[in-house]
C-alpha cells in the first residue's frame, strides 16, 4: 500500500479504486492513476498527510487514502 512506503521509496500504482471518488477524480486530474510511478516524499507526524511525487510534481493526500492505494514497490 502507498501509505506503507517509507520516505524516499518508489512504487507503481496498481489499484486506486478503493478510495473516495472525489479524491480519485482529483488525483486523476493531476495525472495520478493506475500505472503511475510515485515516490514517497514525506509523511507528516501523528498520522497526518503524505506528500508524493510523480513526474516532478508533488501532491499531498491523507494517510487514510494513501493506505488504500495499492502499489508495487520498485
Amino acid at each position: 500500500m502507498l501509505g506503507n512506503l517509507k520516505k524516499g521509496e518508489k512504487g507503481k500504482i496498481l489499484n486506486i479504486s478503493g478510495i473516495d471518488q472525489l479524491v480519485r477524480r482529483r488525483l486523476l486530474d493531476m495525472g495520478i492513476t493506475e500505472g503511475t510511478e510515485v515516490c514517497m516524499k514525506c509523511l507528516m507526524p501523528f498520522g497526518g498527510p503524505v506528500m508524493i511525487e510523480t513526474c516532478g510534481q508533488c501532491v499531498a493526500i491523507r494517510r487514510k487514502e494513501a493506505v488504500q492505494i495499492e502499489v508495487e514497490r520498485l
Binding site: D20, L22, V23, R26, L27, M30, P49, M51, Q57, C58, V59, A60, I61, R62
Partner: peptide, 11 residues
C-alpha cells in the same frame, strides 16, 4: 459528509 484533502504542492 466526509472531509477531503488533496492538494498540489507547486515548486
Amino acid at each position: 459528509e466526509t472531509s477531503l484533502f488533496v492538494i498540489e504542492l507547486p515548486p
